[in-house]
């Protein structure tokens, strides 16, 4: 009986111990940063692994990029080993023009690097206002790149903090090409009654690109 327990103990110690060779430390360094244009972050769709950057590292025989997903406030985070990396945008993926420039990133401990991009449009001075049951957003829409036309300008609301063109309760859109001062309204009487929380965000969708430019901040309606 006793031998049996000793035997079980020895076996379980043997199982729980392991040789050191196959154990690597997990990556310790954190690379954080934002996707910016003239110092201001660009809002994107944060759900569904939609917008990504890529990290590459030279010096290995086979290459596999590390996909780094951008959050809806334009920030990104990656856990990495210390080393030299190259950070690039992915052609046609984000709402910005693809640039063949590579950003050299040296990661040592916790590192912060902003990546500069040239978005097709930017949003400025975004103001939200709730008048009764009407939600109104006003903002300045600037066309940065002449090659893209607009599909539409949208005001979205959702009952979670993730507000984007894939996740919304209700939206109002203005179709067609425009720029300058924009005012867009959305009647949310029904949602105000039925939902416990409501968040709003502005999105600008251009032609030929899956992703849209968003307000990097969300506005809490309720």
């Amino acid at each position: 009986m006793k031998f049996k327990y000793i035997f079980i103990q020895i076996v379980s110690i043997g199982l729980l111990l392991s040789c050191g060779k196959d154990n690597y430390d997990e990556p310790q360094a954190t690379l954080t940063g934002r996707v910016v244009h003239e110092g201001k972050p660009i809002g994107v769709r944060g759900s569904n692994n939609s917008v990504r950057l890529q990290l590459w590292q030279n010096g290995f025989a086979l290459k596999t990029p590390i996909d780094v997903y951008v959050a809806q406030d334009g920030s990104y985070t990656a856990k990495l080993f210390d080393g030299d990396y190259q950070l690039i945008t992915v052609s046609g993926n984000g709402p910005w023009a693809h640039s063949t420039d590579t950003l050299q990133v040296q990661v040592k401990g916790n590192t912060t690097v902003d990546i500069n991009v040239r978005p097709y449009y930017t949003l400025e001075n975004i103001q939200y206002q709730l008048n009764g049951t009407k939600l109104q957003a006003t903002f300045q829409l600037n066309k940065i790149d002449e090659t893209r036309n607009l599909d539409n300008v949208n005001l979205l609301i959702n009952d979670t903090k993730f507000v984007d063109l894939g996740n919304f309760e209700k939206r109002s859109s203005i179709d067609g090409n425009q720029s300058g001062a924009i005012t867009i309204e959305l009647d949310i009487a029904n949602e105000l009654n039925t939902k416990n929380t409501l968040f709003a965000r502005v999105a600008v969708k251009m032609n030929g690109i899956t992703e849209a430019v968003y307000d990097p901040n969300i506005f809490r309606v309720k």
Partner: peptide, 17 residues
């Protein structure tokens, strides 16, 4: 696929990749 690119660098990527 990245593996095909690794073994054949003459391939070019598709759009959005």
């Amino acid at each position: 696929d990245q593996n095909w690119l690794n073994s054949n660098p003459k391939l070019v990527r598709n759009p959005y990749q």
